[in-house]
């Protein structure tokens, strides 16, 4: 083969490989849920409203509509965003409201039936302060936990009266769990997760949504 032919072959091969790599990398890096920013609204406190749904509308969540997931209400537009990433200012009181549209799932380890790390050490279920629930037996049934382990924050979320499968849901058939906590002074990413194995159809309930951003785990980004 001539030099020109060899070099041409080489360039074509390199372009093919580079194209493939760019395709995979782009697929990988451009994916992922968005971050809802609560840092802009600094009035001393931050109000975060979220909801849990047993499954979602395929139009809103095309990837895994059957998975149990969270939605966060955007403070800017007031619409529900399918994500588990949110950003809050450091050393600020955060008031969380979780609307439960999911049915009951027992906790695996009863220790997560205890409220810890919140202001006053309690969470309000429909307005009633609660310290400890039995996730297997009631009187309050729980569906998930909202936990930030590095802050020792763990709150069982009350199960809703009905199971809504078209998330995001806007009807009134939901439970309301509210609690407050202080964000730390140190900026950075704080993971939060659910300790109730709720990945339906995964072994021990711990696969799928439990291990995927945008569903049952995410990051609380603390900015200074």
């Amino acid at each position: 083969m001539s030099l020109a032919a060899r070099v041409t072959t080489l360039i074509v091969a390199v372009l093919a490989v580079v194209g493939g790599v760019i395709f995979v990398v782009a697929h990988y890096l451009l994916g992922g849920p968005p971050t809802v920013d609560f840092a802009a609204a600094t009035s001393g406190q931050v109000n975060v409203t979220m909801q849990t749904d047993a499954s979602s509308d395929p139009a809103t969540v095309p990837d895994h509509p059957t998975w149990v997931s969270y939605f966060i209400k955007s403070p800017a537009s007031g619409s529900w965003v399918h994500t588990t990433l949110f950003q809050v200012p450091a050393h600020t009181r955060v008031n969380v409201t979780i609307l439960g549209y999911d049915g009951s799932t027992p906790v695996r380890n009863q220790v997560w039936g205890q409220v810890s790390g919140t202001t006053g050490g309690v969470a309000d279920y429909g307005g009633k302060p609660v310290k400890t629930v039995n996730g297997w037996n009631g009187p309050y049934l729980i569906q998930h936990t909202f936990a930030i382990p590095s802050l020792n924050l763990s709150v069982p979320v009350e199960a809703g009266p009905a199971t809504c499968t078209t998330g995001p849901c806007t009807n009134n058939q939901h439970s309301t769990t509210t609690f407050s906590f202080m964000t730390p002074a140190q900026p950075g990413a704080y993971r939060w997760q659910c300790f109730v194995p709720c990945g339906l159809s995964y072994l021990d309930g711990n696969g799928g949504p439990m291990q995927t951003f945008g569903y049952m785990t995410g990051n609380m980004q603390v900015v200074s």
């Binding site: 049915g103 009951s104 027992p106 037996n137 009631g138 194995p197 339906l200 159809s201 309930g205």
Partner: peptide, 24 residues
């Protein structure tokens, strides 16, 4: 046993059970 939940039947009756043990 990760999936032996006491009073599971009771939980099941009270509210729609969604995925204890994953149901794999």
């Amino acid at each position: 046993d990760p999936n032996a939940v006491a009073q599971l039947g009771k939980v099941f009756q009270k509210a729609g059970l969604s995925g204890a043990g994953g149901g794999f």
